[in-house]
Amino acid sequence: MKRAVIAVITLGLLAGFFRFVPLFHLVPLRQMQKQEAQAEFTATNYATTFWDEKLQKSLDRAADASKVLSALTADPQKARTQFGRTLGVSSSTLFFLRGTGRVVSVTKKGVVLALKDGDGTADILLPTGLQFGNTVRDGTGLLDASAFPNSQNFNNLSTELNRIVETTVLPQLREQAKVGAKISFAGCAEVDEDDAGMKPLKVIPVSVKLESP
C-alpha cells in the first residue's frame, strides 16, 4: 500500500514536471506554415522600415559618381579602397554613389546617363527591368550580415528591397526618362575586378529626381 502511494506521488510529480518542462512539442503543420508566412512578412516590414528610416536618410553618404568613375578608370584598386567596400571574401566591390546626368538614350536595359562632369558619353546605366540579387542590400553598408542569425531572413530582405526599387523608384524613372532630361540619382553598383573601368556603370537606383533643365 505504502509503495503504491509513493508510486502515485512520484508519477504525479513527474507529470507536473513534464507539464512545465515537456520532452517534446507537437506543433500543427498549419501553425508552422503560418509562422513561416509571418517570417516573410517580417522581412517586408523590416525592408520598408529600413528603406524609409535609414536608406533614404543616408543618401548624402553616397560617393560622387563622377569621382568614382574617374577613379575606377585610373586605378581600380585605389577606387575600391577609397570609395567601395568588399563584403567578406569576394572579387567584387560594392559602391554607393550619387550624381546628376543627362539622358543620352533609353534602351530595353534601362536609362543611360552622361554625367554632368563627364565627357558627354554614356557613363551610367540605370536599369529599369526586374531587379535581382544583393546589390541594394549590401551596397550602402548600412546592413550587417552578422546581425541576422539565419541567412535566409537576410536574403529575404534582398528580395523585399528589390521589390521596393521596382515598385517605387523604377516607375518614376521610366516616366521621367526622356532623351535630354536631367536626372539626379543615388544608387548601388557592384563591380567585378574583371570589369573595373567598364562604362556605362550599372547603378541600381534607390532614388531618382527630375531636375529642371
Binding site: G88, V89, S90, F132, G133, N134, A147, P149, N155
Partner: peptide
C-alpha cells in the same frame, strides 16, 4: 554551412549561396 545562431560559433565563413543562385537563375 551556417548554424542559426550568432553567439555560439567564433566565426562563420559561408558561401553566399543566395547570390550565387541569383546569378545561376539569370
Amino acid at each position: 554551412r551556417e548554424i542559426n545562431s550568432t553567439n555560439a560559433a567564433t566565426a562563420q565563413m559561408l558561401s553566399d549561396s543566395y547570390s550565387g543562385c541569383v546569378k545561376l537563375g539569370e
